[in-house]
Design a protein around this nucleic acid. Structure first.
Lengths: 149, 149
DNA sequence: ACCAAGTATATGAGAGTTCAAGTAAATTGA
DNA sequence: TCAATTTACTTGAACTCTCATATACTTGGT
């Protein structure tokens, strides 16, 4: 009953797996090497740095940083140990926590950003034509809208 | 000096991260739920199952399964515990090891494959038009050829 | 006011990954 | 021929992630 992948689909699928893994590995290696953090942490810090007053509820932060709640909890615990994030109790909902980016945290991400952007360009944008970038954007938006939630 | 991402590039980049992460999470969840293995293990078993006599040198297997040598070593150790893979010493190069897919291992992957292929279709091929699939193939091939090695 | 159900987050255990270092065998080259 | 280098693979520790479970608070009926 299974509709197997034909030769073209196999090729596409394997190219997809290779390409996405290579990009992710390049990102992670660069960040780990130059900024001592995994990409997941970087995304958390970026999300916080863009929030008003650099503070956000944990659950919203999880959504923005594309993290599960559990992963975020663990990550923020580590980031707190480094002094990059602080947790405030939420006054209007006392179950809630608010993650706050500290000045040290902001400095850390400001220092990490240029190298990271360079790596993003090196591993993705620089190797594609403008048309390919446009196509990729649409493809990813479609996938995202379909699978999200 | 940093050339930051403009608004379009930001959108593309975030769509790319979301889409690829969603696909990978869907794959991993399906395999973990229905076949009790992570995607990385699945790729190792697939690579072995396609090899002549279902056996391959560790280093070549790492390349085919897109795994680091260290990851592969750990993974094969686990797969060996399950009785899905065996390790033979390599006669002509006694440093080498040859991973061999056992009958149980072959049965495991044969059982896992249909659900996995279904998930691949659900999360990628079914949501894209044929043109998009072709474009994605080219894009990923380009990225792959650039970053590989 | 009370209790059941739902929500927000944390926590712990188990598993996989990475990185650095370790072992063993092959190769190089003086 | 033998020391130095390189190659193949493994190992251990540190870290992150996932999943299941726990905790604390809130909400919606009754």
């Amino acid at each position: 009953m299974t509709r197997w992948l034909d030769a073209d689909e196999q090729r596409t699928w394997r190219n997809f797996l290779s390409a996405t893994q290579l990009v992710n590995e390049a990102l992670d290696r660069q960040l780990q090497r130059d900024a001592a953090m995994p990409h997941a942490y970087y995304m958390i810090l970026v999300a916080l740095s863009e929030a008003p007053e650099r503070r956000m509820r944990m659950s919203e932060l999880a959504a923005r940083a594309q993290s599960s709640q559990s992963r975020l909890s663990h990550a923020v615990a580590r980031l707190e140990e480094r002094g990059w994030v602080r947790r405030d109790r939420c006054p209007e909902d006392r179950r809630g926590n608010i993650a706050v980016l500290t000045d040290d945290g902001f400095a850390a991400i400001a220092a990490a950003a240029p190298g990271h952007v360079a790596e993003v360009r090196r591993s993705l944008f620089d190797v594609l034509t403008p048309d390919q970038v446009r196509a990729l954007d649409e493809i990813c938006a479609t996938v995202r809208n379909t699978l999200e939630r």
